[in-house]
Write a protein that binds this DNA or RNA. Structure first.
Lengths: 194, 194
DNA sequence: CCGACCATGTAATATGTTACATGATTGT
DNA sequence: ACAATCATGTAACATATTACATGGTCGG
């Protein structure tokens, strides 16, 4: 959570609401969070001196706090990215459900797999879309991140971005092909029974 | 959590310690949990009437509670498996770290990707091993699950098991090939810089 | 007898979800 | 005026992690 926010703000300053949008959308594929988690965390990070907030208004009265990364915050982020990657314990309700579905009829299992296929087909399309926008320079946030850099650094940043998003595309494609094969094998079962 | 335990006990009765072992190992690839979560949850499920515990002893004095699924528990599990699959918000510290690594030098990024490769190589080998044991009938717990069933039902259960585990093998293989390609692309970068 | 493993628990803390709550702005 | 979206918060609850804590069994 902490590093998602620091990382986000390391591209450019942004408000809590901006974060809510990003972590509910594109960035949320890597780290999701809801507004009730984000706003308190921003205040914690501010009191820890890692970010600073500036009060602004939209229109006449609507308050908005725009946060920026401090030096300490940037250093903290940098230190973290240099550590070896962490892996959280997996929690995958879908797989668990499938594993214990052997008392269900074939049709129920088919529906499960079809829903899985649909879920990841949608996800794949969304990620492809996002990746497209980034690589063609249509993503404003990533543009801001890149414009501070020279050509070589920019190529590196763009490569990392592409690796992350295309990795997610592949994950989605994997689930699609897995579910497709699974459906075929399920049909094979039903066939040999009849 | 709840359904991991109910699912586990739907194969055969088992103790809290058994669950600790499984959710720290093979079953933990789908749903991980530690003993401090498991023991209290078992008591909650018991007071909800979904499982019942019987006190036994190992040797002379060492207490052990063996839990079994009740009718209500089995029904609850069955109802759950018939619902459409759930997907949790993703939280992937590794990808996030990579995405914000553009201020690091190529060597640091290389180490990150190499660590990723190592992590999933190990994981793949473990899952392949487990899958092998299941398919050749060497997994006692799954044997117990299967022996209650006739040939057709057994084939179905074995298929689901295979789908779950081979899905995990593929995920690991995906990460391996992704990281391998990523390393190659990173070398490409470093090459064009020199 | 000692180390590895069996077996179970609690407490403090951290993290995450759902629901409740409020009010302004912008475009139609 | 009305709806959609901007913008921020709190409270109750559920879930998960880390550390603390205890004692028995089994094989060498």
């Amino acid at each position: 959570m902490k590093y998602t926010i620091l990382g986000y703000l390391s591209s450019a300053p942004g408000s809590g609401y901006d974060l809510v949008q990003q972590l509910g959308g594109g960035l949320g594929w890597f780290w999701a969070a809801s507004h009730s988690q984000i706003y308190p965390e921003l205040r914690r990070l501010e009191s820890a001196g890692l970010i600073t907030g500036a009060a602004t208004t939209v229109g006449e009265r609507l308050e908005k706090r725009v946060y920026s990364l401090t030096e300490a915050g940037l250093q903290d982020l940098l230190d973290w990215t240099r550590q070896k990657p962490e892996y959280r314990p997996s929690r995958d309700p879908e797989r668990l459900q499938l594993l214990f579905s052997d008392n269900n009829d074939v049709e129920t299992i088919r529906q499960h797999l079809q829903a899985h296929l649909d879920h990841f087909t949608e996800r794949r399309d969304q990620v492809i879309d996002m990746r497209e926008r980034i690589l063609t320079g249509k993503h404003p946030r990533i543009q801001q991140r890149l414009k501070k850099k020279d050509a070589a650094e920019r190529a590196k940043a763009l490569l990392l971005c592409d690796l992350a998003y295309s990795g997610d595309v592949r994950r989605a494609e994997l689930e699609i092909s897995w579910a497709t094969e699974a459906l075929a094998r399920l049909d094979g079962l039903a066939g040999s029974e009849a």
